[in-house]
Design a protein around this nucleic acid. Structure first.
Lengths: 191, 191
DNA sequence: AAACTTATGGAACACTTGTTCAGGTAGTTG
DNA sequence: CAACTACCTGAACAAGTGTTCCATAAGTTT
């Protein structure tokens, strides 16, 4: 009756919803978007076969929810480093993304491609780009866009290299690019 | 009997093989790798349901063959422009890739991601990068790698933009990047 | 504690999938 | 023209898919 009191049933439901989304992300990391089925997700999450269907009307909804959530998470992690970190920090971040977090990075780029075919995903896929621009407020937008594009390219090319590039290899390239971010950004920002 | 005479049956088979691969690429362009099934490919190619299975033992083999072939084709088209073209030419090429050839570009990046999970596809996915380096022979490899990375990034980001970027938007960015290719490449090459 | 609402899950259905296989067909050879 | 061989295919199957449906369990309210 208190206005704060939420229905315990709904609370439990929310928890399960989240567990399902997390399980879906694990499946994508392991097997790609192709590997996502109601059943594979249910197995991974340890819930009944019909639970994913119950919480997400269609398989598409589940995928979309998962990738939106994933994109948001990744944004928080990477954004600050990319927008304000040193070349060394950025290189380290990239090296991790294509090595330890390889599965996660692959999943992230599957979102990109999916967004290419599903307009409703575009904002989520583009979110880190928009936020990066907002955060860095570069005085030279052209150079900054080149920098951001190169980050995507380095990651994706890192994923198909025979051996993932390490921090030492990436740093000079990042340094070269970072000019587009810093050259003029260093000027005092007034807002 | 002449040593040139090939079995007419085999010749016909080769033609069908190619038709199947081309149909597969069309399916990928339209529906993505997910949409590729023996049956969808057969429908698209106008061949019997079992033909794809006959020519390619497994669905994976079919996908691999298609993507190898596609990568090779794209290489021939884009490579020269990217390695030696002017900023304007490159920008025009990119603008086309994310607009008229959008489906094809999407398909190409699905190859990238697939290669991330199937090591045997890596060489094919990486081919244009290797060839570009060989063709441009940049004196500044770092800048050139940054340039190549940015091309991938611009394409992929172009695919998820609300409206595909046009030549005019892309040209300044390419100009900014192309320094890494031309700055020192212009020096006389001796070999 | 009875009435009510909401979340949940097992069984089932219609459908599509990859793949197999025995027979037929077309091209080649003697 | 007959024998041969390699290529090809339609029907069929087992397995897995997304989704529906209703009985039940769990929680809330009166």
């Amino acid at each position: 009756m208190e206005f704060q009191k939420v229905d315990g049933r709904k609370a439990r439901g929310e928890k399960k919803r989240r567990a399902i989304v997390e399980a879906t992300l694990r499946v994508i990391e392991r097997d790609g978007v192709t590997g996502v089925t109601h059943r594979s997700v249910a197995r991974e999450a340890g819930v009944p076969t019909t639970a994913p269907t119950y919480y997400y009307a269609t398989l598409d909804d589940l995928l979309i929810a998962t990738l939106l959530w994933s994109a948001e998470e990744l944004c928080d992690e990477m954004l600050h480093v990319v927008a304000t970190g040193s070349a060394r920090e950025i290189a380290q971040c990239l090296a991790q993304a294509v090595d330890e977090h390889r599965g996660r990075t692959l999943a992230e780029y599957e979102l990109y491609l999916l967004a290419g075919r599903r307009p409703e995903l575009k904002p989520a896929a583009r979110r880190w780009l928009d936020l990066a621009v907002e955060l860095a407020r570069p005085a030279d937008p052209t150079g900054f866009r080149a920098f951001l594009a190169a980050i995507d390219g380095l990651l994706i090319q890192g994923l198909i290299a025979d051996v993932a590039p390490n921090e030492a290899e990436l740093e000079p390239i990042v340094s070269f690019l970072i000019r587009g971010r810093d050259e003029l950004t260093a000027a005092p920002r007034e807002e």
